[in-house]
């Protein structure tokens, strides 16, 4: 961890600190949605089936939106241009973002999981810690994809549109609505190629069994790997020189 990365992370957290409403939304939104879901289902059993997956999906979505907008704003204002004339690496900038938003994701997931496990009566067979780790990885994946997606948006309006374009198909195909093995073959293939599917698989496994098997470990590796690749691709899209 370099001085530049730490300074950048601190700067982003300071920016957030000045924006109380965004902080409140980021920390509380997944929990509130889970509460809503619990009462929509009005059945502990049905909630127990859907909630673990959503514990991953909600932070994933929120982090995607927040990061893609914040990074785009940095790209659009001249601050990035100025940073690129200074002694800071592109990867250092992105890791600063990752660190800051990663910390936010940890808080967000911890609050949501606490609410779900205590107040809402979520029961899981596996380890709570593992559940937390997977959910945080999901949030980091959303963040990394958001960083990457921001490179392809020219305006904040476009960036917001990437949410339905990149996030929603993954949510529809991740096995939350219909188990993946019951989807048409082509859809199943597509869902195999989408990282969120592995996250939801992992979360479902932790809920239903205490065993940590090879598939679960593979899923974790896939999620972390996708997040890392998206981050590196994001760094490649930051250019020191622009046309």
């Amino acid at each position: 961890m370099t001085v530049n990365t730490l300074a950048t992370a601190k700067r982003i957290l300071t920016q957030l600190r000045h924006d109380h409403r965004t902080v409140a939304l980021m920390v509380l939104m997944p929990s509130l949605l889970l509460v809503l879901l619990r009462y929509v289902f009005d059945s502990g059993q049905a909630f127990n089936r859907a909630a673990p997956a959503l514990l991953g999906v909600f932070p994933f979505t929120i982090m995607f939106i927040v990061t893609s907008i914040t990074t785009l704003r940095e790209r659009l204002t001249a601050t990035l241009e100025r940073l690129m004339t200074m002694p800071i690496g592109r990867v250092e900038v992105l890791l600063g973002y990752a660190l800051a938003f990663g910390l936010v994701a940890v808080v967000q997931v911890a609050v949501a999981a606490t609410v779900a496990l205590t107040w809402l009566g979520l029961e899981i067979a596996g380890s709570v810690w593992l559940l937390l780790v997977i959910a945080v990885l999901d949030a980091l994946l959303g963040m990394a994809l958001g960083l990457f997606a921001s490179a392809f948006a020219r305006t904040e309006f476009q960036a917001v549109q990437f949410m339905p374009a990149i996030v929603m198909p993954q949510v529809l195909l991740c096995g939350l609505f219909v188990p993946r093995d019951r989807m048409a073959t082509v859809l199943n293939w597509i869902s195999d190629a989408l990282p969120l599917s592995y996250a939801v698989d992992a979360l479902t496994r932790v809920t239903t069994s205490a065993e940590v098997d090879g598939t679960l470990v593979r899923n974790l590796v896939v999620i972390a790997g996708c997040a890392l690749v998206a981050l590196l691709l994001g760094a490649a899209t930051l250019r020191r020189r622009t046309p």
């Binding site: 241009e81 100025r82 940073l83």
Partner: peptide
């Protein structure tokens, strides 16, 4: 280098901006 449109973070104070860039520049 100072760009034509102000290149400081709007949601930070002036001093916070300067402290950030100062740490990047050592």
């Amino acid at each position: 280098y100072s760009t034509q449109s102000p290149s400081v973070y709007a949601d930070l104070t002036v001093a916070e901006n300067l402290r950030y860039f100062a740490s990047i520049l050592r």
